[in-house]
Design a binder for these strands. Structure first.
Lengths: 216, 216
DNA sequence: GTCTATACTAGGATAGAC
DNA sequence: GTCTATCCTAGTATAGAC
């Protein structure tokens, strides 16, 4: 599995209706591919123009700067994840076990279905100034809280035997985030398979009772 | 826990005796700090010189190029990890359970004790050409195999109930790697605490029998 | 909105004195 | 080994025509 590339993905897909139409959308796609492959600083405005099929100067009719292109992508990625997590939690019927499973499933699915977006949102956010990063950071904090509340509640209710929700959350988030780095079309799994398997791992980490793991 | 910075660490430590003495070592330290903070492409040769307390031109008396500085760091990081994993595995007395626990403990410890080195080794390798990356990639492949063999053997022996060693390994490696991003002096854990806790998580992921998890 | 042309800065790397 | 000075390329961004 080890490879040099940052991602095993090949197509740079953006969630439907999330990307603007026309040239602005093509710029976003181009930025996504290039930032994922070479990083923000390793990508020039001319690279983006060439990939999007426009002159580099045209970019400034749609975004104020290269940083604004990245900021749009980083925000979009965090929004998509947060919306999915919220929806998963609301739809989960049952106790903390099924809620945790639903959250992790959504988290992993988002990283497997949009690996480049997840990669850029996570690995390139450091290139944004603190103002540009703030909205995405706020969403990340909220997503983090969703997971933490479920873990806390499961421990309080005696359904999870884990004793340290912070470490459990860090482990669960870590294994999910890395999916963006290794999942690609050459892997013999569907995103759903990975999501379901990792949901089980998360329940194991949390120390959910065995019968819960099989019925969620 | 969410933060914009790539790492919560503050000191850029290198394993003892791994860094060369004198100016070459100061360049390596400077590169480590800057590559971790701003990425390879975001760091200029002049940045490195300033941080190391030398003129940027002096760098070329010690390294052939900026890429060679990164290559040295990436290789060093992978060597350190691989040596620790080998040592952990050899010292582990007992079956697959204690071997898995030892591997994960070593993996997590390395990422918590040298977070910046782990960060650069993992997140910046993509900036190396394939020739420069090859030695580190080979080590990574070997480290990966160590984990996979232990998981396979545990499953074969019936000690682990997990059915998919590849996904289990991906999850275990993922949660360990992320430690480099969030662990820092402001966390109320020692590296040992995290390593022990995550070892338990790995056993849970693998589906080790409960009594094994408590005795390893 | 899109292009050509261009201003201006910063970056990697080398030459040559000490 | 280290510095100063410099070459040359590539980078971000803007001006102005169409």
């Amino acid at each position: 599995m080890p490879e040099r590339a940052r991602s095993a993905a090949v197509t740079a897909e953006l969630p439907e209706q999330a990307a603007p139409p026309g040239t602005a959308g093509r710029i976003l796609h181009a930025g996504l591919e290039l930032f994922a492959e070479k990083g923000f600083s390793g990508t020039s405005i001319r690279d983006i123009g060439a990939r999007a099929g426009i002159n580099s100067a045209t970019l400034y009719s749609h975004y104020r700067s290269k940083e604004h292109v990245l900021a749009a992508l980083v925000l979009l990625g965090h929004q998509e994840l947060h919306v999915r997590l919220q929806r998963a939690l609301v739809r989960a019927q049952g106790g903390p076990g099924s809620q945790l499973a639903a959250l992790v499933r959504a988290h992993v699915l988002a990283h497997a279905e949009y690996p480049l977006l997840a990669l850029v949102a996570n690995a390139e956010m450091h290139a944004l100034g603190s103002d540009a990063a703030a909205p995405a950071l706020a969403l990340r904090e909220q997503s983090w809280q969703l997971l933490l509340v479920v873990l806390d509640e499961g421990i309080r209710a005696g359904e999870f035997t884990a004793t340290d929700p912070l470490l459990a959350a860090a482990a669960i988030v870590g294994m999910g985030r890395q999916v963006a780095h290794w999942y690609g079309p050459r892997q013999p799994y569907t995103p759903e398979q990975i999501a379901d398997t990792f949901s089980g791992y998360a329940l194991a980490i949390a120390g959910a009772a065995q019968h819960d793991r099989e019925t969620t």
